[in-house]
């Protein structure tokens, strides 16, 4: 496969920030992920071709860093912090609640591909614990009522997305 001309242009541009192409692999992976949602092997190969670097350099980064997804993730990626301050704020209850509501275990994606539930390490919201991110958006000072509202909204949003 080949990357789109636009994506290639963006990758070339970010590569100018560095003295060598290898440094541009991480930003290139972000750009590719934004376009393709997740990084399948063919995309990784195409990134290597675009930057003219060995494939292994691209593969090793895509698998080392957790924010690159080599498997599909849901449209809404819920990332609940369960580290100490959130743990003390009873994040485990919220995890259980979301598992029941979405009918998946943590680490799984709903059958319709809409929600992935992950538990993550500290996201820097400790004074507003418990906290989670949905894709890039932060939600802080969570309790069950708030989480319920968030899920309700996302469910409505995702079904209206489908109609349009």
């Amino acid at each position: 496969m080949e990357l789109s001309g636009e994506l290639v242009g963006e990758i070339r541009q970010v590569a100018d920030n560095y003295p060598n192409a290898r440094s541009a692999i991480m930003p290139a992976l972000y750009l590719a992920q934004a376009q393709y949602q997740y990084l399948e092997t063919d995309v990784l190969r195409a990134v290597a071709v675009t930057l003219d670097v060995p494939e292994i350099w691209v593969f090793e980064l895509a698998t080392f860093y957790t924010m690159y997804h080599t498997e599909p993730v849901g449209k809404y990626h819920i990332q609940l912090c369960t580290n100490v301050s959130c743990l003390l704020g009873k994040a485990e209850h919220l995890k259980q609640y979301m598992e029941e509501r979405l009918q998946i275990e943590t680490g799984e994606t709903t059958e319709d591909g809409k929600f992935t539930l992950s538990k993550v390490e500290c996201i820097g919201s400790c004074d507003k614990a418990p906290a989670m991110m949905v894709n890039q958006d932060y939600y802080e000072n969570l309790d069950q009522v708030f989480v319920e509202q968030i899920l309700d909204r996302l469910m409505v949003q995702s079904s209206s997305d489908q109609e349009t």
């Binding site: 060598n20 290898r22 440094s23 090793e60 957790t66 390490e121």
Partner: peptide, 20 residues
């Protein structure tokens, strides 16, 4: 991209250089 160890300064430099 989500690796705590990048806070360690030599690991951080490795990461900018495009390595694990």
């Amino acid at each position: 991209a989500g690796a705590y160890i990048c806070g360690e300064e030599t690991a951080l430099l490795e990461s900018i250089e495009g390595r694990r």
